[in-house]
């Protein structure tokens, strides 16, 4: 479930990146975050499948809920990392402008 949620996040982010007007939102960083994690969890899933075989596809409900909760938390963490980086880099100068306005 975590792999699926991260994979969907990666696909959606990549589509948004492709349709971007300019690079001011730095969506590339978010794409790499999600794709990197998706590839790593994919490898983890392959090894788990090799161990559990068909049982891998029929997880217990409690495990599924836990994995879904984890997947959503992972997406939230990635979005926070991206947002912090975006605000620090401030490519549009919005933060700087807001700070100047407050100062003045």
């Amino acid at each position: 479930m975590t792999l699926l949620i991260t994979l969907f996040a990666a696909i959606i982010t990549t589509v948004l990146w492709y349709n971007r007007k300019d690079d001011s939102m730095r969506l590339g960083v978010l794409c790499f975050l999600f794709w990197g994690a998706s590839i790593m969890w994919f490898v983890d899933a392959i090894f788990e499948y090799a161990e559990l075989k068909a049982e891998y596809f029929t997880p217990a409900l409690s495990d599924m809920i836990n994995d879904t909760y984890l997947g959503l938390s992972v997406v939230a963490l990635a979005l926070i990392i991206w947002l912090v980086r975006l605000l620090i880099a401030d490519p549009k100068g919005s933060v700087r402008a807001a700070l100047k306005r407050e100062k003045g």
Binding site: T6, G28, L33, G36, W41, L70, S73, V74
Partner: peptide
Amino acid sequence: KWLTRMLWGGCVLLAFEHLW
């Protein structure tokens, strides 16, 4: 840079999973 971002991104999110 692409490789660095993919590796660090994956590591941070996987580290969070291990913490979980």
